[in-house]
Amino acid sequence: MAAFALYLAAALCEIFGCFAVWIWMRQERSIWWLLPGMLSLAAFAYLLTRSPADAAGRAFAIYGGVYIAASLGWLWLVEGQRPDGWDLFGAALCLLGAAIILWAPRSA
């Protein structure tokens, strides 16, 4: 479960960083939104390097599934739009795929 927490923290950092740019550009807010956004994106990149995966591509694939689920949580909790059943089904499939990639037995 420590791996999942790591990927979730990375996802939240990436989502916030991108959201800060979204706020600045799409909602015409202060350019100062970019500072915490950039810091958050740097934290995302650092956290992803802490992945237990044996290769960067595998870490990115695992992260992708967690990112999708976390994005739907952001949609609901921050943007106030409840995910529908198809959103949840898709996220569950992505998390299943991420779990298979993460915990699959691998030969040395």
Results as ranks from 00 to 15, higher is better:
Ala3Met: 04
Arg50Ala: 13
Phe4Asn: 01
Ala56Tyr: 12
Ala45Thr: 12
Pro83Gly: 10
Gly85Lys: 08
Phe4Pro: 00
Ser107Glu: 14
Val78Cys: 02
Ala11Ile: 08
Ser51His: 08
Leu47Gly: 02
Arg26Asp: 08
Ser30Trp: 04
Ser107Leu: 13
Arg50Asn: 01
Leu72Asp: 03
Asp84Tyr: 13
Ala99Ile: 02
Leu6Pro: 02
Leu12Gln: 07
Asp87Phe: 13
Tyr7Gln: 02
Tyr7Pro: 04
Arg58His: 08
Asp87Gln: 14
Trp33Pro: 00
Val66Lys: 00
Ile68Gly: 00
Gly85Ser: 13
Ala92Arg: 07
Val66Ile: 15
Pro105Lys: 15
Tyr67Gly: 00
Gly65Phe: 02
Thr49Ala: 03
Ala99Cys: 13
Leu72Asn: 11
Trp74Gln: 00
Ile101Val: 13
Leu39Gly: 13
Phe89Val: 15
Gly57Val: 06
Trp32Ala: 15
Ala11Phe: 03
Leu12Met: 15
Ala2Arg: 15
Ala70Cys: 12
Thr49Gly: 07
Ala11Arg: 05
Ala56Gln: 15
Glu14Leu: 07
Gly85Glu: 14
Ala43Glu: 05
Trp76Thr: 06
Ala59His: 03
Gly97Trp: 02
Ile68Phe: 11
Ile23Tyr: 04
Glu79His: 06
Gly80Tyr: 07
Tyr67Trp: 08
Phe16Glu: 13
Leu72Pro: 00
Trp103Leu: 13
Tyr63Asp: 03
Ile23Asp: 10
Ala69Pro: 03
Arg82Gln: 09
Gly64Pro: 00
Ala61Asn: 12
Asp54Cys: 03
Arg26Asn: 14
Ser107Asp: 14
Glu28Asn: 11
Gly73Phe: 08
Ala2Val: 11
Ala53Ser: 12
Leu47Asp: 00
Ile62Trp: 03
Arg29Asn: 15
Trp103Val: 04
Gly80Thr: 10
Leu8Lys: 14
Tyr7Trp: 05
Gln27Tyr: 04
Arg50Gln: 09
Ile100Tyr: 13
Leu47Arg: 06
Gly80Asn: 08
Glu79Gln: 09
Ser40Gln: 02
Ala69Thr: 01
Ala91Glu: 03
Gly85Thr: 14
Gly64Cys: 11
Cys18Thr: 07
Met1Tyr: 11
Leu95Arg: 04
Ala42Ser: 10
Glu28Pro: 00
Ala108Glu: 12
Gly37Ser: 05
Leu96Arg: 10
Ala61His: 11
Ile31Tyr: 08
Ala20Asn: 04
Ala61Met: 10
Leu41Ser: 07
Leu39Val: 07
Ile62Lys: 05
Pro36Met: 04
Leu77Gly: 10
Ala69Tyr: 14
Ala108Pro: 13
Ala10Tyr: 05
Pro105Asn: 06
Arg26Gln: 09
Leu95Val: 12
Ser71Thr: 10
Ile101Asn: 01
Tyr67Asp: 09
Leu35Ile: 14
Leu77Thr: 11
Gly57Cys: 04
Ala20Asp: 01
Ser107Ile: 13
Leu47Asn: 02
Ser51Leu: 05
Leu48Trp: 01
Leu35Asp: 05
Ala98Arg: 08
Leu72Ser: 05
Ala59Ile: 09
Cys13Thr: 01
Ala10Thr: 10
Ala45Gln: 15
Pro83Trp: 10
Gly64Met: 08
Pro83Ala: 05
Val66Ser: 04
